[in-house]
Amino acid sequence: MLEISKLDGFYGNSRALQGIDLTVPTGTFLSVLGRNGVGKTTLMRAMLGLLDRTDGAIRLDGKDINRLPTHERARAGIGYVPQGRGILPRFTVYENLQLGGFARTSDRGKELEALVFDMFPILREFRNRAGGNLSGGQQQQLAIARALMTDPRIILLDEPAEGIQPNIVELIEEAILSLNRRFGITIVLVEQNIPFARRASTDFAILEKGRVVASGPIAGLTDDLVHRHMAV
């Protein structure tokens, strides 16, 4: 279980997150929603220890990880697919995948490699191609696969469908669903696609000005909430 309690997040002296309280039970799927610039990516970065400072608690299975460095949070079981994918363009597909192994504490490397090639066959075909020579959709598949190679208990995904061609968006969405429903990996997803959030999620949280303004089971994500907190 991931528990976030009274979390404040700072860039320098500027407080970007204010009193965030969220509970994400093991095996659930939380969609984090809101307009651009309300703190969704900042929340992802706070969970990974990538902000200048965070106050409050971030607990993973009861252990407060808020003072741990990023690499130890990854080894504790948190995988991350950042906005913009974050692959290494000069490394091959296979080399990018192998980077995930540095955060893995299990001996499931070969099993996970088979899994990602089964889930994303194009990565097997292009395993010796430089990551920078892949299309945007292929790079996103690689970013998700690299996170999976860490053998995570939780995967944080920051707008994984952004800028991706529609035919690949569906593949990526189905892969995320499979990670949650077939393999039991807890998902925390930053998303703008309300229909997908409603179809995939068990729970939601809406952010506004760095605060959680609405949250709960996905059935409570009403059209009124969407209009009030997400309409432009």
Rank of each mutant, 00 (worst) to 15 (best):
65 I>S: 07
7 L>Q: 06
104 R>F: 02
90 R>I: 07
100 G>V: 02
105 T>L: 15
78 I>H: 06
15 R>F: 08
35 R>N: 10
119 M>H: 00
29 F>T: 11
44 M>I: 07
60 L>V: 12
48 L>S: 09
124 R>E: 13
39 G>H: 02
89 P>A: 10
62 G>P: 08
34 G>L: 04
18 Q>Y: 11
85 R>V: 09
56 G>I: 05
18 Q>P: 01
63 K>Y: 08
87 I>D: 02
103 A>H: 03
77 G>N: 07
34 G>A: 05
85 R>Q: 05
60 L>Y: 03
47 M>C: 12
62 G>R: 13
127 R>D: 00
67 R>E: 15
58 I>T: 07
94 Y>F: 12
50 L>M: 15
93 V>A: 05
31 S>K: 03
53 R>F: 13
47 M>Q: 06
91 F>P: 00
53 R>Y: 14
39 G>F: 00
8 D>I: 07
92 T>A: 07
122 I>Y: 00
64 D>K: 02
23 T>E: 11
44 M>Y: 01
45 R>M: 12
69 P>K: 11
28 T>W: 06
21 D>L: 11
17 L>H: 06
128 N>S: 14
91 F>D: 03
94 Y>K: 14
129 R>S: 02
72 E>R: 14
67 R>L: 15
40 K>C: 05
42 T>Q: 11
43 L>N: 09
47 M>S: 02
122 I>G: 01
7 L>A: 08
97 L>F: 09
32 V>N: 04
39 G>T: 09
76 A>S: 15
75 R>D: 04
39 G>I: 09
7 L>S: 06
44 M>C: 14
107 D>V: 00
75 R>M: 13
43 L>Q: 10
95 E>T: 00
81 V>D: 00
95 E>C: 03
126 F>L: 13
54 T>D: 04
67 R>F: 12
9 G>R: 08
118 D>G: 12
68 L>S: 09
118 D>A: 06
46 A>P: 10
129 R>W: 00
31 S>H: 02
34 G>I: 09
126 F>I: 00
36 N>I: 09
17 L>V: 08
47 M>R: 01
127 R>V: 01
43 L>I: 09
74 A>Y: 02
21 D>S: 12
120 F>T: 01
34 G>K: 00
23 T>L: 08
129 R>H: 04
21 D>C: 14
13 N>I: 03
86 G>E: 04
102 F>W: 14
12 G>L: 10
103 A>P: 01
36 N>P: 05
9 G>V: 08
35 R>A: 14
85 R>Y: 04
78 I>C: 09
18 Q>I: 12
110 K>L: 10
26 T>R: 13
89 P>I: 10
124 R>Y: 10
109 G>M: 11
28 T>C: 11
18 Q>S: 15
34 G>Q: 03
65 I>W: 09
53 R>C: 12
76 A>R: 15
88 L>F: 15
31 S>G: 04
83 Q>H: 07
75 R>S: 10
43 L>C: 10
14 S>F: 14
